[in-house]
């Protein structure tokens, strides 16, 4: 028998081969006629102004920070969700406490305006 996790590696290789094969096929048969105007980034036909790597708003950073906190929380919760029925009421109330702490964090971020987009 193959180990379970070999399947994952194999499917990743398969995906890379699939995309790679599509690119190679296209590379073999497509025409090549680059020109300066053609390679200019698209800006609705206007002459390009300034750099496109502009500064972006701090809100994106705040949202991503909150996401990281919640994502890690959910990762901690998944093993609990699988076994909590065998662990009885104590496990449930521990999770209520854990989620409660995070809920306080969410309320704090909300009050501080981290969730406002405008």
């Amino acid at each position: 028998m193959l180990p379970d996790y070999f399947n994952i590696v194999f499917f990743f290789m398969l995906g890379i081969a699939f995309v790679g094969a599509a690119f190679v096929t296209s590379w073999l048969i497509r025409p090549r006629a680059p020109s300066q105007a053609k390679n200019a980034p698209y800006e609705c036909g206007e002459v390009i102004k300034g750099n496109s790597r502009v500064q972006f708003n701090i809100r994106y950073y705040l949202v991503t920070l909150i996401f990281v906190i919640f994502d890690v929380e959910i990762l901690f919760t998944i093993p609990w969700a699988v076994v909590f029925r065998q662990m009885g009421a104590a496990a449930y109330f521990e999770m209520v406490f854990f989620i409660g702490v995070l809920a306080i964090g969410l309320v704090y971020a909300w009050k501080k305006g981290a969730l406002e987009w405008l």
Binding site: E43, S52, R53, V54, R59, Y60, T64, F67, F70, D71
Partner: peptide, 22 residues
């Protein structure tokens, strides 16, 4: 892509996907 529309779209998409992931 070095394109303003692409960058804005990518930023928005990242923010949207991580928000709805939770």
């Amino acid at each position: 892509s070095n394109n303003k529309y692409s960058l804005l779209g990518g930023m928005r998409s990242a923010a949207q996907i991580v928000s709805y992931e939770v």
